[in-house]
């Protein structure tokens, strides 16, 4: 529980994908996203799938983990499938009942839509599975840097992410403590009915939120006391190094996307 909250979805490993620069992975994900959006035919989807399988395999993380990553989105995938099946009326008619019709094309397009969704989710999991939150945050910071021209402060965004990464486990710890305190007074969370569970969570929300605000106030002071000035120039202990492998990785995706567009 603890480590999961601290490390997010990171899966420890030492594959070459793990070692890539987070910026390369971020870039690759964007390219893959574009490719998936562009892919509409079976051939294109097959190429993308084959490509994805090769990359996923080389992360040396069990395949089932990627499949599980898409689990929360199964209802959405099912919905897309049903939507296409019901409202796409091309091709052979397989089943007819009044104005209600299921056709070969509807089923096919439904399958494609669901598959694209699945491909996207499981593939982009590679980013969070093989990159530590700290590295991911650094990658985001440098990816956001160009936006400073339009007045977006990359530094304050990443500071925000850092602080969330820092405090989410602490806030959970506190909530857990409160929950245990309630339990010791006879209200055992496990045995409660759904309504009572909801009530209990609500009563927890208040102290936890108030605590978070107080904490924020003190945190700001502690940061200032140690010399933090928003958007002032600062150095960083963590650095990213771009290697040849990163260029190669990104190039692979560019080629893949070009092939898809040409086809």
């Amino acid at each position: 529980m603890q480590t999961r909250m601290i490390m997010g979805r990171y899966v420890e490993g030492d594959s070459w994908i793990h070692r890539l620069d987070p910026r390369a992975k971020l870039g690759a994900m964007v390219l893959f996203l574009v490719a998936v959006i562009l892919a509409s035919r079976g051939l294109e989807l097959s190429i993308l799938t084959a490509f994805a399988v090769v990359v996923l395999l080389s992360s040396r993380i069990p395949f089932t983990r990627y499949i599980r990553a898409a689990k929360p989105l199964w209802p959405l995938m099912a919905f897309m499938f049903i939507f296409y099946t019901l409202f796409e009326h091309g091709g052979d008619i397989w089943l007819q009942w009044g104005s209600f019709r299921i056709t070969s094309e509807g089923v096919l397009l439904g399958l494609f839509a669901a598959w694209r969704m699945f491909l996207l989710i499981s593939f982009t999991s590679i980013l969070t599975f093989t990159t530590t939150p700290i590295a991911l945050n650094l990658g985001l910071e440098s990816a956001l840097k160009p936006l400073s021209i339009v007045g977006v402060s990359a530094q304050s965004w990443t500071m925000m992410i850092t602080i969330s990464l820092r405090f989410i486990p602490t806030i959970f710890q506190e909530a857990e403590k409160l929950l245990k305190a309630q339990a010791s007074r006879g209200a055992d969370y496990q045995d409660l009915k759904l309504m009572d569970k909801a009530k209990m969570v609500l009563t927890l929300m208040v102290p936890v939120t108030v605590g978070a605000f107080r904490r924020a106030e003190e945190l700001v002071m502690a940061m200032e006391a140690r010399g933090y000035v928003l958007d002032a120039p600062r150095t960083s202990l963590r650095t990213l190094t771009w290697r040849a492998a990163d260029t190669l990785f990104l190039l692979l995706f560019v080629i893949m996307l070009s092939v898809m567009i040409v086809l």
Partner: peptide, 14 residues
């Protein structure tokens, strides 16, 4: 400056 609550002055993740 050392504050009272050790949690509220710990900024980074390691």
């Amino acid at each position: 400056y050392l504050f009272q609550n050790p949690d509220n002055q710990f900024i980074a993740t390691t």
